[in-house]
Every structure is written in structure tokens, then in C-alpha cells.
Design a protein around this nucleic acid. Structure first.
Length: 308
RNA sequence: GGUUCCUUGGCCGAGUGGUUAGGCGCCGGUCUGCAAAACCGUUUACAGCAGUUCGAAUCUGCUAGGAACCU
């Protein structure tokens, strides 16, 4: 049976280099599971693998998209599974590396098949929301898919909008398509994360933000500034620098807020991890790769440690 | 020494007698198609003391700390 080794965890925890070591040790390739490193033009702000790192091990799904491209967890599932099957033609292992938890969930558990929304429907529902706000969405769902409305977070316009879009596109209530069923994968999955204590991780984040600035993050953001309204740039770091370019935030504040928002992001990732009982946690103060290899060898799907 | 003014929760900041301001941060959480997204929940203060009042962050007095001006 083939094995998928997933190196995940919060931002700045050292996933990239660990994944490379593992891929080299297992003589295989890396599939990135990072919703922003997917786009090229953003290497600094997304802490993408460096050119040296990319040269050391074959990486997939890094820098392959234009900022204007649409992408989603479902597409990731499809792309990743396809690439994995190719990697497994020549190796028993494949390494996946990234912190986009929903993407990883899509690969490990699958995601329901939903129709792709046409631009017309998308625009139509958006117009409904812009005109009528949340109440209009509620009313629409009450008519189209009351079961969804029943379970939904009534304040989360994004999800409400999407349910309406799906219903209109599919012609059946979204709630009948959102089964939540988990797919059984025909391969072994081992998830690994580095178990930094929160204070240590925050310290690493703060230092990395400074390093990004030193590497030219501002210039990188300046280059894509004209495209700032794209979803691909609705991203920690870029948002704050755009505000600085707009003149609504001074430089010092912008940098401090990048660090702050990165910490918030890391906390959300930590939350996902803490709810996943199958993640193997590595001791950050010992060599990581040997620990990971041991987990893989022992076929451990187990958990341990919590940083609460 | 004298006169006037100021003092709100981790921070900012409303509130001049009678429900919890609010924002930010912190902390916690939701999650099956934009997820580094979107959303939700907590966090209950009025410098201290003594009064007035049915009731005070809001009125009075004193104390402490701070600011401006005067001699």
C-alpha cells in the first residue's frame, strides 16, 4: 500500500524544510498543500520554498497559478490525487506539505461533488446580497433550501451565498448535495506536525515577518498592488501592505499587524490540529526528520502532547 | 504657595443620576468549493475614601497622581 506523509501544522513551524528532508530520505516528491503558495508572484509573502529548495526536491502545486485564477479545495483534491498517483508510480511514498487545513481535509476525507457556479449565477446572488444584505439571503434560502438555513450560521454571508449559488446551479437544494460523507482512501495517511509551544511559535513568526520585510516583501506586494481586490491577494501580509500603500496605515503599524495577523492565522491552524486526533506531534527541540521517519516506520497514526 | 483642569476595563475611547457604549487586543470557537477566507462567543471598568440620593462613572467634600497658568 502506498503512503502519503502529510507535513502540516501552523505557519512558520518549519514544514518546508522538514518536508524536503523527508522527501529526500524517502526518495520521493512533494505536493504542496498551501492555498497561497499555489500562486506565483507571491514567493516572499507566502514563505514559499526557495529556488534552492525547489531544486533539491521536485515540488508540485507551487507557483502554478495566476493570481486571477479560480481555485478551491475541491480542485485541490482533484489535482493532488492525480499528482499523488503519478508519484506513486515510482515511489511507495509521497510527501504533502502545507498548512491549508481545508485542502488537506479534502485530500484525506474527500469533499462533496458540487457544481461549478456560472459567472451569471455568481453575479446574480452577489447582487442580491449587495442590495438586500443578510435578510435577503435568509429569505432566498427560506424559499430555496430551508434545511440549509436551519443549520447555517446566519451571519456568515459567504456560506449563505454559496448555498444559494449551489442550489440555483444544481437545481436541487444545496443541503441535499452537502452530505459530509467521508471518502475512504486507498492509501495510508500519516500526518505530522512540529509541536512548538505557542510562545516559541509566536517568536518564530515575529522573526520571520522581519525577515520577509528584509527580503523585499514590500516590493513584492507593490508589484501586485494593482490586483489587490483579487481573492488570491486577500492574504495576510499583502492586505496590510496594501493598506500602507493606500496611505491608511503607517509602515510600523502595517508590519506589526502582519505579525499579529500571522499569529492569529497560526492559532486557527493550531485549532484544526488540536481537533485532529491522528496527527503525530514532533518534539521541536530534537532532530525532526528522524522522529518523523520513526512515526512512518511504526505506522503510527497516533496522537500525543497538547500545547494547551 | 495660588488658580483652573484632568484621572474610565490590557490599550483607545463614549457616556453629565436609572438597561451591556463601542473599537482594538487577548482568549475561546465554527467550518465540506474563494479557507492566509468568512463568521461567532467571551473578556464587564469608571483613581481612592466619605457623603447626597430610592438609585452615582455621572452631584459634593477630602486624599493621591497628572497637566496648564500665576506669584
Amino acid at each position: 500500500m502506498k503512503t502519503l506523509v502529510i507535513v502540516t501544522g501552523p505557519t512558520a513551524s518549519g514544514k518546508t524544510s522538514l518536508a524536503i528532508e523527508l522527501a529526500q530520505a524517502l526518495d520521493t516528491e512533494i505536493v504542496s498543500a498551501d492555498s497561497r503558495q499555489l500562486f506565483h508572484d507571491l514567493p516572499i509573502g507566502t514563505a514559499a520554498p526557495t529556488s534552492d529548495q525547489l531544486a533539491a526536491v521536485t515540488h508540485h502545486l507551487v507557483g502554478t497559478l495566476e493570481l486571477t485564477d479560480y481555485y478551491s479545495a475541491a480542485r485541490f483534491e482533484e489535482d493532488a490525487l492525480r499528482i499523488l498517483s503519478e508519484i506513486w508510480l515510482r515511489s511507495d511514498y509521497a510527501v504533502m506539505c502545507g498548512g491549508s487545513m481545508m485542502y488537506i481535509d479534502a485530500v484525506t476525507n474527500g469533499i462533496d461533488q458540487l457544481p461549478t457556479i456560472s459567472p451569471q449565477i455568481r453575479a446574480e446572488v452577489m447582487a442580491l446580497y449587495e442590495k438586500g444584505g443578510l435578510p435577503a439571503l435568509h429569505e432566498s434560502l427560506r424559499r430555496l433550501d430551508p434545511a440549509y438555513l436551519d443549520k447555517a450560521d446566519p451571519s456568515n454571508h459567504r456560506r449563505l451565498i454559496h448555498a444559494i449559488e449551489i442550489t440555483l446551479q444544481a437545481g436541487v437544494p444545496a443541503s441535499t448535495l452537502l452530505t459530509g460523507n467521508r471518502k475512504q482512501r486507498p492509501f495510508r495517511i500519516i500526518k505530522i506536525a512540529v509541536g512548538w509551544e505557542r510562545a516559541e511559535l509566536f517568536d518564530r513568526i515575529n522573526r520571520r515577518v522581519d525577515a520577509m520585510i528584509a527580503e523585499g516583501f514590500e516590493q513584492e506586494a507593490r508589484r501586485v498592488y494593482p490586483l489587490r481586490h483579487l481573492n488570491s491577494l486577500n492574504t495576510v501580509g499583502y492586505k496590510e501592505l496594501f493598506a500602507m500603500f493606500d496611505g491608511t496605515m503607517d509602515r510600523e503599524t502595517a508590519i506589526a499587524r502582519i505579525a499579529k495577523n500571522t499569529r492569529v492565522y497560526a492559532k486557527k491552524q493550531l485549532l484544526w490540529l488540536s481537533k485532529d486526533p491522528d496527527v503525530c506531534i514532533l518534539d521541536p527541540h530534537k532532530p525532526l526528520c528522524p522522529q518523523a521517519l520513526r512515526f512512518i516506520k511504526e505506522n503510527r497514526g497516533a496522537k500525543m502532547v497538547d500545547n494547551s
